[in-house]
Amino acid sequence: MENDRFEKRLHYAYILSMITIGYNLVEGGVSTFFGASDETLALFGFGLDSFVEVLSGVGITHMIYRMKRNPVTERDGFEVTALKNCLVHSCRRTCSGRCTGHHQQV
């Protein structure tokens, strides 16, 4: 029973990770296209940021796929790199807003 719930949750997580990757690919493509065509650096940078999030999503999807196939004992190299990328990217976004005095609106 508990294993079935775990498998179902892994399936939901996999679907959400694929949606996230697809959404960020579209968002990045549209943002970089319009940012480059309108010469808007902020919009172009937002698009590039979306592509970094795609890399993080690929790392999460890889982890979920591996968890579905094998019991989780330890993270492999790809997951460690993807998680470090997420951490560095999150810190960079937080610090850049605080250093310049700009805050993201929620």
Rank of each mutant, 00 (worst) to 15 (best):
N3W: 02
N3F: 06
D4N: 03
D4R: 04
F6C: 01
H11N: 09
A13F: 00
A13L: 01
S17D: 00
S17K: 00
M18E: 00
I19D: 03
I19Q: 03
I19G: 02
I21S: 03
G22V: 04
Y23F: 11
L25E: 01
L25W: 01
E27K: 09
G28P: 02
G29Y: 06
G29P: 02
S31R: 00
F33K: 02
F34V: 09
G35Q: 06
G35L: 08
S37V: 11
D38S: 11
D38P: 00
E39F: 05
L41H: 11
A42F: 10
F44Q: 03
F44T: 04
G47T: 03
L48A: 09
L48F: 12
D49P: 01
S50L: 07
S50Y: 10
S50C: 15
V52Y: 06
L55P: 00
S56P: 01
S56F: 08
G57L: 01
V58E: 02
V58D: 02
V58S: 01
V58M: 11
I60R: 00
T61S: 11
T61C: 07
H62C: 04
M63Y: 09
Y65A: 12
R66M: 10
R66I: 03
P71N: 15
R75C: 05
G77V: 10
F78W: 13
E79D: 02
E79C: 07
A82Q: 01
N85R: 02
C86Q: 10
L87P: 06
L87Q: 10
L87W: 12
V88R: 14
H89T: 15
R93T: 15
R93Y: 14
R93A: 15
T94S: 13
C95D: 05
G97K: 13
G97H: 14
R98D: 07
C99M: 15
T100N: 14
T100F: 12
G101Y: 11
H103I: 13
H103T: 13
Q104D: 15
Q104C: 13
Q105V: 14
Q105C: 12
Q105T: 14
V106L: 14
